[in-house]
């Protein structure tokens, strides 16, 4: 049986695991954006927060992913379901690019524009939502894009703790020394990563301020 036949026969399961995979990546990205963007704004506004926040996010990145999944296993509530652990771990990894790009994007807004806005009586909130965030949007978005592409890859490891996703094929294939199984997980994962990169890249370009 060749690969294409294999893929064809296991179409249903591949689709199911792909959806699972997307769900892990999607939810964790949402969390990372919901936490990372405000943290990025905070660090851009209050320089003293810059080191501790970016330092912590950096530190998390240095923890090997398999080890991080392992650390989280004994945590109560979290450890009850593998997908909770996977989502938390993926969220933590995705934080750094989101925080860093939010910080860079906001700091990169032309100081003259910010000063003009402040000088004409915009409140700090108005300044943030009308000026700084719109102008930083494409930079923030490229951080989210990096986070998503990295997550798609990392999420394959979530299968090691039973969280599902395309990693299941890969781990099963590794255990059974079956290359077709490995590829059945790896190829859709690679396609997902490329599609996310391309799609989000396209969006990013269209968010570019003039």
């Amino acid at each position: 049986m060749n690969l294409s036949q294999f893929l064809h026969q296991n179409y249903d399961q591949i689709l199911e695991l792909t959806v699972e995979h997307l769900w892990l990546v999607g939810i964790s990205t949402l969390f990372a954006v919901a936490i990372g963007v405000p943290l990025g704004i905070l660090t851009a506004r209050r320089q003293v927060w810059n080191r501790p926040v970016l330092g912590t996010a950096n530190l998390i990145q240095t923890v090997p992913s398999l080890a991080l999944f392992g650390f989280l296993l004994p945590v109560p509530w979290l450890g009850e379901r593998a997908d909770r652990i996977a989502i938390l771990a993926l969220t933590l990894y995705a934080l750094l690019p989101v925080i860093r790009n939010t910080y860079t994007g906001i700091r990169g807004v032309d100081p003259a524009v910010v000063e003009a806005g402040r000088g004409m009586g915009l409140t700090e909130t108005q300044l943030l939502f009308q000026v700084e965030l719109p102008l930083a949007l494409s930079v923030i978005f490229s951080g989210i894009r990096v986070a998503v592409v990295v997550s798609v890859g990392l999420a394959t490891i979530a299968a090691a703790i039973g969280a599902g996703g395309l990693g299941e094929f890969i781990f099963r294939g590794l255990a059974m020394v079956n290359n077709q199984l490995i590829l059945a997980g790896a190829i859709p994962a690679a396609i997902l990563a490329l599609a996310a990169d391309f799609g989000l890249g396209w969006l990013e370009k269209h968010l570019q301020p003039r």
Binding site: D110, A112, V113, A116, R118, M120, T123, L135, R210
Partner: peptide
């Protein structure tokens, strides 16, 4: 401070128009 600034027009050399 917001009320004060709304009552004062401010023009700078770099203009600082909102590019978006």
């Amino acid at each position: 401070v917001i009320h004060l600034r709304r009552g004062i027009g401010y023009v700078i050399q770099d203009v600082g128009l909102f590019p978006h």
